[in-house]
């Protein structure tokens, strides 16, 4: 049998198989309902995580006598962006794409501790992120809104203990980001900076 015959037969098989598929009902309703339900779930988890991280941040800043007034949210087109970055870039999956290493995290002092793996975060333009907390591989998905609104979900991960860098907590608590060529900052629901990363490559 020639390749062409086989290819023609394949087309026929696929067409026939496709034609045999029964009509699906209410795809729109199911897709939108599921998406909204998932979004609500993400918001609830994010809100709970944000409260937890904000509490840690408040305790840390309170003890260290650091900045106690909430920073203003870095809204594009706003009056005074809270970011400390020199020149902000419009946050998008393209501008955050790349590898980032943590330089500051609210409530975490041991960022420079020895770890089996490099605790980096990698954002890809297809909406997925990967990384390592220093000893466990991490992965998930993220979304960036037009004004820097940020949401992320984490996938399954191992839980080997070490001086784990809580990237996942930061990503899930973050509500907004600010980015420039070398710095990526995450902000919680109350506008406080949760973490700052520097571009690794």
């Amino acid at each position: 049998m020639s390749n062409t015959d086989l290819e023609d037969d394949l087309r026929g098989t696929f067409d026939r198989a496709a034609a045999s598929v029964p009509m699906a009902t209410d795809l729109t309703g199911r897709a939108t309902t599921d998406a909204r339900r998932a979004q609500r779930r993400t918001w609830m988890i994010s809100a709970a995580a944000a409260v937890a991280v904000a509490s840690i941040a408040a305790a840390t800043f309170g003890l260290s006598g650091g900045r106690s007034t909430p920073v203003q949210l870095p809204v594009a087109g706003g009056n005074a962006p809270a970011s400390t970055s020199a020149v902000e870039t419009e946050p998008s999956v393209e501008t955050v794409s790349g590898t980032w290493r943590p330089v500051q995290m609210a409530g975490l002092k041991a960022l420079s501790a020895e770890r089996p793996e490099d605790p980096v975060l990698v954002f890809r333009p297809d909406g997925t992120w990967t990384g390592s907390d220093g000893c466990n591989g991490l992965q998930g998905t993220y979304n960036i809104g037009q004004r820097g609104e940020f949401t992320a979900k984490a996938g399954m991960q191992r839980l080997i203990g070490c001086d784990n860098v809580p990237h996942t907590g930061v990503l899930q608590s973050a509500k907004r980001i600010a980015v420039d060529a070398s710095t990526l900052e995450f902000y919680g629901a109350d506008g406080r900076e949760l973490a700052r990363y520097a571009r690794a490559r």
Partner: peptide, 9 residues
């Protein structure tokens, strides 16, 4: 449904 859900979001 997965594809549509992600597209909708």
């Amino acid at each position: 449904q997965i594809a549509l859900m992600q597209a909708f979001r």
